[in-house]
Nucleic acid binder design. Sequence first.
DNA 1: CTGGGGACGGGGCCC
DNA 2: TGGGCCCCGTCCCCA
Length: 259
Amino acid sequence: MPRSFLVKKHFTSKKPNYSELESQTVIISPFLYESYPLPVIPQPDLLTSGAFYPPLVWDAGLLSSFFTSEPEYPASPPSPVEDSKPLDLTSLSSEEDDCSKASEPPSPCSPASGADKFQCLECSKAYSTFTGLSKHRQLHCEEAQGRKAFSCKYCDKEYVSLGALKMHIRSHTLPCVCKICGKAFSRPWLLQGHIRTHTGEKPFSCTHCNRAFADRSNLRAHLQTHSDVKKYQCQACARTFSRMSLLHKHQETGCPGPR
DNA sequence: CTGGGGACGGGGCCC
DNA sequence: TGGGCCCCGTCCCCA
């Protein structure tokens, strides 16, 4: 994964021109967010809004679209994506609206005749409304997929909730864009932290030495330097380190073994 | 080489 | 359900 430190050199070795940023030095995020309520970086075609929704999560918009323009249960178009993830029934796509694609054709659910117009072809249960059938179909999909019913279209990650998946999707779409340098982030507060690299704002201060930090995690790591006994200890030699990475490096290269 | 700082990512929790 | 925030963690750079 490309790391964003690639842009770091612009700001660490040289001070940014803060005079250009004075208008937004203190109150940062609201203005910038308002300037970029939606992704301003051109998104590839696959990053459509429809891609955020797994096939079987039927929302009002999806349902209405069926009742207005797509009365029949959607057929499942062949997708090149499914080959790589044969058991992934919920690969996000604006086109794959049917979680049953792995077990078809034919589609297990389709409108039936009579009072219960919508019948599940998998278990023959019939429902009078499409909503009822949809909820029923979701049960089939959850059974087939186990607990993690939401998988990301862009990677192999799987999540138990749609919310968690949406949050993860943002790491692919990067909707939060820095107005100053154009760098994109997955979440507003990540952008906010990044903007501090432009403004020099350091709201987190060490109570021991008053040194200020722009990042809370960095302050936490710094606080370890004030401690005689560091947080991370080598099980072999009992030496302690302020950071996990230092402990790992120690274990890989420099551990002399038990004292 | 080591320790520390800077920048950032992601999951989970809470409101 | 979504956003904010926290915590944990990683990676790079530098003294």
